[in-house]
Design a protein around this nucleic acid. Structure first.
Lengths: 149, 149
DNA sequence: TATTGTTATACTCTATAACTATA
DNA sequence: TATAGTTATAGAGTATAACAATA
């Protein structure tokens, strides 16, 4: 977009309201969900669902320093949610993956958070549910478009 | 909600996707916005836009302890964004309100965040904008309904 | 005595710098 | 030498406990 393009007041208002609405939803979910591990540790576990990762990879993904990630991982291994293993070809690397307990925890915490949202959607009409379905897809599209720009 | 109420799989999926979409929007806005004060301090300033508050009121609203709020407020007064004043009738109370600088800061930071969102909505068709407008109103309604239950 | 707010102290998460082991 | 990870140390934000001032 041109650097100083004038902004349509309708879009500006929608942008404001949509941003606030999303932030409020995110905030509510965070506060209401019962959590076993704090957010920054849960975020790490969630990264390991798709595949094992090294300390350095996780640090980059979570945008924290290597020592910070090293400590966080140590906590998760102490709690039995993550296991360490050596890389076959490079002795410097530490491969991290979820234990069965870690995997279960991720699934359960996600279900908790989804349940919070689902409770608030159940009373809606089919029409409103369809509206939200389409809006959700549209938001996801906007975000993914941004990421690949 | 009843502890073990069955959940419509369609609703469950929408709940999951909508929650994720909102959290991603909130996250993006937080990362991309250039901020002068950290989030927890900005949140306090935003509380003072509507009306002056006491330390205890702010602590309750932000869900932190009184000493924590006391320290945060001290930082904001040091930076010139907040002023302290005595209550007329109760000498124990400290009334906190925004300085002109604090008020300007809130306005500017909000505009920054809105701009981030607005950039991403400008390319949408009128139809899609209308869809998001209605969805936003619906989400706000759901959230406010929850708050007043 | 009860309430409002601050000060004292400690714990957690974060970072940078220094160190060890491997490539 | 360069890289992956850990340990040492320090700074910021948070909490509980103890304290001061006012009701």
């Amino acid at each position: 977009m041109p650097p100083h393009a004038p902004v349509d007041p309708t879009i500006a208002e929608l942008a404001h309201d949509l941003r606030i609405a999303c932030m409020r939803v995110a905030r509510r979910v965070r506060f209401d969900a019962d959590t076993v591990v704090p957010p920054h540790l849960f975020s790490i576990l969630a990264r390991l669902v798709a595949q094992p990762r090294t300390v350095g990879e996780l640090a980059a993904m979570e945008r924290v320093s290597a020592p910070t990630m090293s400590r966080a991982v140590a906590q998760l291994t102490d709690q039995g949610y993550v296991v360490r293993s050596a890389d076959e070809h490079d002795g410097r690397l530490v491969r991290l993956s979820l234990t069965p307990e870690g995997s279960t925890l991720v699934t359960e915490e996600r279900a908790n958070r989804d349940a919070w949202m689902a409770e608030r959607l159940e009373g809606l009409s089919a029409k409103d549910q369809t509206l939200l379905r389409r809006a959700t897809d549209l938001i996801e599209e906007i975000l993914s478009r941004e990421a690949t720009r």
